[in-house]
Design a protein around this nucleic acid. Structure first.
Length: 286
DNA sequence: AATGACAGCAACCGCGGGTTC
DNA sequence: TGAACCCGCGGTTGCTGTCAT
Protein backbone atom coordinates (compact mmCIF):
# COMPACT_ATOMS: atom_id res chain seq x y z
CA UNK A 1 0.00 0.00 0.00
CA UNK A 2 1.24 3.46 -0.71
CA UNK A 3 1.94 5.73 2.14
CA UNK A 4 0.29 9.10 2.15
CA UNK A 5 2.76 11.95 2.44
CA UNK A 6 3.04 13.26 5.94
CA UNK A 7 1.96 16.65 4.76
CA UNK A 8 1.19 18.46 1.61
CA UNK A 9 4.47 19.54 0.18
CA UNK A 10 3.18 22.72 -1.34
CA UNK A 11 2.80 25.84 0.69
CA UNK A 12 4.02 24.47 3.99
CA UNK A 13 6.90 26.14 5.75
CA UNK A 14 10.03 24.25 6.72
CA UNK A 15 13.09 25.10 8.72
CA UNK A 16 13.49 26.96 11.99
CA UNK A 17 10.44 28.09 13.86
CA UNK A 18 9.83 31.79 14.41
CA UNK A 19 8.83 33.11 17.86
CA UNK A 20 5.43 33.97 16.42
CA UNK A 21 4.88 30.39 15.24
CA UNK A 22 5.95 29.13 18.64
CA UNK A 23 3.46 31.44 20.29
CA UNK A 24 0.62 30.34 18.03
CA UNK A 25 1.35 26.67 18.54
CA UNK A 26 1.73 27.02 22.30
CA UNK A 27 -1.48 28.99 22.65
CA UNK A 28 -3.42 26.58 20.52
CA UNK A 29 -2.24 23.49 22.38
CA UNK A 30 -2.85 25.09 25.75
CA UNK A 31 -6.38 25.94 24.71
CA UNK A 32 -7.34 22.94 22.63
CA UNK A 33 -4.81 20.21 23.32
CA UNK A 34 -3.27 18.13 20.56
CA UNK A 35 -5.62 15.29 19.89
CA UNK A 36 -4.91 15.33 16.17
CA UNK A 37 -1.55 16.56 15.02
CA UNK A 38 -2.45 16.31 11.39
CA UNK A 39 -5.37 18.66 11.72
CA UNK A 40 -3.73 20.92 14.28
CA UNK A 41 -1.73 23.27 12.03
CA UNK A 42 -4.76 24.05 9.90
CA UNK A 43 -6.90 24.70 12.97
CA UNK A 44 -4.19 26.80 14.57
CA UNK A 45 -3.49 28.71 11.39
CA UNK A 46 0.07 27.50 10.98
CA UNK A 47 1.69 26.79 7.65
CA UNK A 48 3.42 23.71 9.01
CA UNK A 49 2.74 20.02 8.76
CA UNK A 50 1.44 18.20 11.80
CA UNK A 51 4.63 16.30 12.18
CA UNK A 52 6.64 19.46 12.39
CA UNK A 53 4.24 20.88 14.99
CA UNK A 54 4.42 17.75 17.09
CA UNK A 55 8.21 17.76 16.98
CA UNK A 56 8.40 21.43 17.91
CA UNK A 57 6.04 20.94 20.81
CA UNK A 58 7.56 17.75 22.19
CA UNK A 59 11.16 18.80 21.79
CA UNK A 60 11.02 22.48 22.59
CA UNK A 61 7.77 24.12 23.63
CA UNK A 62 6.41 21.63 26.13
CA UNK A 63 6.30 23.34 29.52
CA UNK A 64 7.83 20.44 31.42
CA UNK A 65 11.03 20.40 29.42
CA UNK A 66 14.15 20.88 31.46
CA UNK A 67 16.56 23.31 29.87
CA UNK A 68 20.28 23.65 30.35
CA UNK A 69 23.23 21.35 30.43
CA UNK A 70 22.98 17.74 31.45
CA UNK A 71 24.21 16.98 34.94
CA UNK A 72 26.80 14.33 35.65
CA UNK A 73 24.06 12.14 37.10
CA UNK A 74 21.97 12.50 33.97
CA UNK A 75 24.92 11.69 31.75
CA UNK A 76 25.73 8.60 33.78
CA UNK A 77 22.12 7.54 33.62
CA UNK A 78 22.11 7.94 29.86
CA UNK A 79 25.26 5.91 29.51
CA UNK A 80 23.94 3.13 31.67
CA UNK A 81 20.52 3.12 30.11
CA UNK A 82 22.07 3.09 26.68
CA UNK A 83 24.11 0.10 27.71
CA UNK A 84 20.88 -1.65 28.53
CA UNK A 85 18.46 -0.31 25.96
CA UNK A 86 20.64 0.60 23.03
CA UNK A 87 19.49 3.41 20.77
CA UNK A 88 15.97 3.44 22.15
CA UNK A 89 16.07 7.12 22.88
CA UNK A 90 12.43 7.47 23.75
CA UNK A 91 12.74 4.71 26.34
CA UNK A 92 15.80 6.40 27.78
CA UNK A 93 14.04 9.76 27.77
CA UNK A 94 11.15 8.23 29.67
CA UNK A 95 13.53 7.61 32.55
CA UNK A 96 14.84 11.15 32.54
CA UNK A 97 12.07 13.58 33.39
CA UNK A 98 12.20 16.79 31.43
CA UNK A 99 14.55 15.50 28.79
CA UNK A 100 13.50 14.65 25.27
CA UNK A 101 14.60 11.75 23.14
CA UNK A 102 16.02 14.14 20.59
CA UNK A 103 18.05 15.97 23.19
CA UNK A 104 19.38 12.75 24.64
CA UNK A 105 20.23 11.47 21.21
CA UNK A 106 22.15 14.65 20.46
CA UNK A 107 24.01 14.54 23.76
CA UNK A 108 24.91 10.94 23.14
CA UNK A 109 26.31 11.59 19.71
CA UNK A 110 28.12 14.79 20.57
CA UNK A 111 29.44 14.13 24.08
CA UNK A 112 28.93 10.76 25.63
CA UNK A 113 29.91 8.53 22.75
CA UNK A 114 33.20 10.31 22.40
CA UNK A 115 33.76 10.18 26.13
CA UNK A 116 33.20 6.44 26.17
CA UNK A 117 35.45 5.91 23.19
CA UNK A 118 38.19 7.78 24.99
CA UNK A 119 37.71 5.67 28.09
CA UNK A 120 37.78 2.47 26.09
CA UNK A 121 41.05 3.42 24.46
CA UNK A 122 42.51 4.44 27.80
CA UNK A 123 41.46 1.22 29.51
CA UNK A 124 42.51 -0.97 26.63
CA UNK A 125 45.93 0.56 26.69
CA UNK A 126 46.13 0.04 30.43
CA UNK A 127 45.04 -3.58 30.10
CA UNK A 128 47.56 -4.28 27.38
CA UNK A 129 50.45 -2.96 29.41
CA UNK A 130 49.26 -4.92 32.41
CA UNK A 131 48.99 -8.11 30.38
CA UNK A 132 52.47 -7.54 29.08
CA UNK A 133 53.70 -7.25 32.64
CA UNK A 134 51.88 -10.43 33.64
CA UNK A 135 53.38 -12.38 30.76
CA UNK A 136 56.82 -11.54 32.03
CA UNK A 137 56.19 -13.16 35.41
CA UNK A 138 54.25 -16.14 34.16
CA UNK A 139 56.22 -19.42 33.93
CA UNK A 140 56.36 -20.68 30.40
CA UNK A 141 55.41 -24.25 31.28
CA UNK A 142 52.25 -23.32 33.07
CA UNK A 143 49.24 -24.89 31.50
CA UNK A 144 46.70 -24.81 34.26
CA UNK A 145 43.47 -23.11 33.39
CA UNK A 146 42.66 -22.19 36.97
CA UNK A 147 42.51 -18.49 37.52
CA UNK A 148 42.96 -17.28 41.05
CA UNK A 149 42.35 -13.75 42.05
CA UNK A 150 44.81 -13.37 44.89
CA UNK A 151 44.59 -9.65 45.17
CA UNK A 152 41.22 -9.91 46.71
CA UNK A 153 39.32 -13.12 46.57
CA UNK A 154 36.39 -11.48 48.27
CA UNK A 155 36.28 -9.08 45.42
CA UNK A 156 34.26 -11.59 43.51
CA UNK A 157 31.43 -10.83 45.89
CA UNK A 158 31.53 -7.25 44.81
CA UNK A 159 30.29 -7.83 41.33
CA UNK A 160 27.56 -5.39 40.85
CA UNK A 161 25.52 -3.64 38.35
CA UNK A 162 26.87 -0.50 36.84
CA UNK A 163 23.55 0.33 35.43
CA UNK A 164 22.74 2.82 38.13
CA UNK A 165 26.00 3.71 39.75
CA UNK A 166 26.40 6.25 42.44
CA UNK A 167 26.69 9.77 41.26
CA UNK A 168 30.40 9.72 41.94
CA UNK A 169 31.13 6.92 39.58
CA UNK A 170 32.80 7.70 36.36
CA UNK A 171 31.19 6.73 33.14
CA UNK A 172 30.72 3.09 32.43
CA UNK A 173 32.30 0.98 29.73
CA UNK A 174 35.49 1.29 31.63
CA UNK A 175 36.47 -2.08 30.46
CA UNK A 176 37.45 -4.17 33.38
CA UNK A 177 39.35 -1.52 35.16
CA UNK A 178 39.88 -4.12 37.82
CA UNK A 179 42.30 -5.90 35.57
CA UNK A 180 44.91 -3.51 36.71
CA UNK A 181 44.03 -4.06 40.33
CA UNK A 182 44.26 -7.81 40.42
CA UNK A 183 46.83 -10.39 39.70
CA UNK A 184 45.67 -13.59 38.12
CA UNK A 185 47.86 -16.62 38.76
CA UNK A 186 47.95 -20.14 37.63
CA UNK A 187 47.63 -22.96 40.10
CA UNK A 188 51.37 -23.50 40.38
CA UNK A 189 52.00 -19.82 40.72
CA UNK A 190 49.50 -19.66 43.53
CA UNK A 191 51.28 -22.35 45.51
CA UNK A 192 54.54 -20.62 44.88
CA UNK A 193 53.09 -17.34 46.04
CA UNK A 194 51.61 -18.73 49.25
CA UNK A 195 54.64 -20.85 50.00
CA UNK A 196 52.50 -23.92 50.17
CA UNK A 197 53.72 -27.21 48.90
CA UNK A 198 51.49 -28.80 46.36
CA UNK A 199 51.83 -32.02 48.32
CA UNK A 200 50.61 -30.57 51.63
CA UNK A 201 48.38 -27.91 50.32
CA UNK A 202 44.70 -28.52 49.90
CA UNK A 203 43.75 -30.12 46.65
CA UNK A 204 43.32 -27.74 43.75
CA UNK A 205 39.98 -26.17 43.66
CA UNK A 206 37.80 -27.31 40.86
CA UNK A 207 37.23 -24.76 38.16
CA UNK A 208 33.52 -24.92 38.64
CA UNK A 209 33.93 -23.73 42.19
CA UNK A 210 35.08 -20.30 41.10
CA UNK A 211 32.43 -20.13 38.51
CA UNK A 212 29.80 -20.88 41.08
CA UNK A 213 31.20 -18.45 43.61
CA UNK A 214 31.25 -15.69 41.11
CA UNK A 215 27.90 -16.63 39.73
CA UNK A 216 26.32 -16.67 43.17
CA UNK A 217 27.96 -13.43 44.00
CA UNK A 218 26.54 -11.93 40.90
CA UNK A 219 23.03 -12.88 41.76
CA UNK A 220 23.40 -11.66 45.30
CA UNK A 221 25.00 -8.33 44.82
CA UNK A 222 23.33 -6.37 42.08
CA UNK A 223 22.05 -3.91 44.57
CA UNK A 224 25.58 -2.89 45.36
CA UNK A 225 26.15 0.01 43.09
CA UNK A 226 29.61 1.09 44.11
CA UNK A 227 31.70 -1.29 42.16
CA UNK A 228 33.58 -0.42 39.06
CA UNK A 229 32.85 -3.73 37.51
CA UNK A 230 31.44 -3.78 34.08
CA UNK A 231 29.08 -5.71 31.98
CA UNK A 232 29.87 -6.40 28.43
CA UNK A 233 27.25 -7.45 26.05
CA UNK A 234 28.72 -9.29 23.16
CA UNK A 235 31.48 -11.59 22.16
CA UNK A 236 32.35 -9.29 19.30
CA UNK A 237 33.40 -6.78 21.90
CA UNK A 238 35.56 -9.43 23.45
CA UNK A 239 37.23 -9.94 20.13
CA UNK A 240 37.71 -6.22 20.02
CA UNK A 241 39.44 -6.37 23.36
CA UNK A 242 41.35 -9.62 23.38
CA UNK A 243 43.11 -8.67 26.57
CA UNK A 244 39.87 -9.30 28.37
CA UNK A 245 39.23 -12.76 27.05
CA UNK A 246 42.17 -14.22 28.91
CA UNK A 247 40.08 -14.09 32.03
CA UNK A 248 37.00 -15.60 30.57
CA UNK A 249 35.22 -18.32 32.44
CA UNK A 250 32.05 -19.95 31.28
CA UNK A 251 29.78 -20.89 34.12
CA UNK A 252 27.53 -23.86 34.40
CA UNK A 253 24.48 -21.85 33.51
CA UNK A 254 26.00 -20.35 30.43
CA UNK A 255 26.95 -16.99 31.84
CA UNK A 256 30.26 -15.81 30.58
CA UNK A 257 32.55 -14.00 32.95
CA UNK A 258 35.31 -11.81 31.71
CA UNK A 259 37.53 -10.80 34.55
CA UNK A 260 34.92 -8.92 36.47
CA UNK A 261 32.59 -8.73 33.55
CA UNK A 262 29.60 -10.92 33.14
CA UNK A 263 27.56 -11.55 30.07
CA UNK A 264 24.29 -13.33 29.99
CA UNK A 265 22.42 -14.76 27.11
CA UNK A 266 18.92 -13.73 27.88
CA UNK A 267 16.99 -10.66 28.79
CA UNK A 268 15.69 -12.25 31.93
CA UNK A 269 19.08 -11.71 33.38
CA UNK A 270 18.88 -7.97 32.69
CA UNK A 271 15.41 -7.85 34.03
CA UNK A 272 16.60 -9.37 37.27
CA UNK A 273 19.46 -6.91 37.43
CA UNK A 274 17.12 -3.97 37.39
CA UNK A 275 14.54 -5.44 39.63
CA UNK A 276 17.18 -6.24 42.20
CA UNK A 277 18.73 -2.85 41.81
CA UNK A 278 15.33 -1.45 42.61
CA UNK A 279 15.99 1.47 40.34
CA UNK A 280 13.48 0.70 37.67
CA UNK A 281 10.01 -0.12 38.74
CA UNK A 282 8.97 -1.11 35.31
CA UNK A 283 10.88 -1.96 32.22
CA UNK A 284 9.98 -1.16 28.67
CA UNK A 285 9.15 -4.16 26.58
CA UNK A 286 11.83 -5.57 24.39
C1' DA B 1 40.22 40.35 9.90
C1' DA B 2 39.23 36.40 6.97
C1' DT B 3 38.28 31.77 6.53
C1' DG B 4 38.16 26.95 7.17
C1' DA B 5 37.23 23.16 10.46
C1' DC B 6 34.60 21.48 13.89
C1' DA B 7 30.91 20.95 17.42
C1' DG B 8 26.28 21.45 18.92
C1' DC B 9 21.65 21.24 18.15
C1' DA B 10 17.09 21.92 15.96
C1' DA B 11 14.56 20.06 12.51
C1' DC B 12 13.57 16.90 8.67
C1' DC B 13 12.77 12.37 6.64
C1' DG B 14 11.43 7.73 6.12
C1' DC B 15 9.84 3.75 8.28
C1' DG B 16 7.09 0.77 11.13
C1' DG B 17 3.47 -0.10 14.51
C1' DG B 18 -1.10 0.72 15.96
C1' DT B 19 -5.80 2.09 15.05
C1' DT B 20 -9.86 2.91 12.41
C1' DC B 21 -13.10 1.92 8.99
C1' DT C 1 -9.25 -8.73 6.07
C1' DG C 2 -6.78 -5.19 4.40
C1' DA C 3 -6.40 -0.42 2.96
C1' DA C 4 -5.90 4.15 4.77
C1' DC C 5 -4.47 6.97 8.17
C1' DC C 6 -2.00 8.73 12.25
C1' DC C 7 1.64 8.82 15.47
C1' DG C 8 6.08 8.11 17.29
C1' DC C 9 10.73 6.68 16.73
C1' DG C 10 15.48 6.75 15.24
C1' DG C 11 18.76 8.17 11.72
C1' DT C 12 20.35 11.94 9.30
C1' DT C 13 20.89 16.62 7.65
C1' DG C 14 22.00 21.25 7.65
C1' DC C 15 22.30 25.63 9.97
C1' DT C 16 24.75 28.35 13.35
C1' DG C 17 28.18 29.51 16.58
C1' DT C 18 32.91 28.89 18.14
C1' DC C 19 37.63 28.10 17.76
C1' DA C 20 42.04 27.65 15.41
C1' DT C 21 45.04 29.10 11.83
Amino acid sequence: MGRAPCCEKMGLKKGPWSPEEDRILTNFIQNHGHSNWRALPKQAGLLRCGKSCRLRWTNYLRPDIKRGNFTKEEEDAIINLHELLGNRWSAIAAKLPGRTDNEIKNVWHTHLKKRLEKNIIKKTTASKSENKRKKQIKPSNSSSSIIIDIANQNQVANYSSTIFPSSQQSSSCEISSSLTDHTYMTESEYYSYTGEDTATAPPPIDESFWSEVVENSMTNSYSDSNSNSNIYDSEEKMEEFPSMSMNMVKTNSGKRLYGQCVVDDDMEFWYNVFVKAGEISELPEF
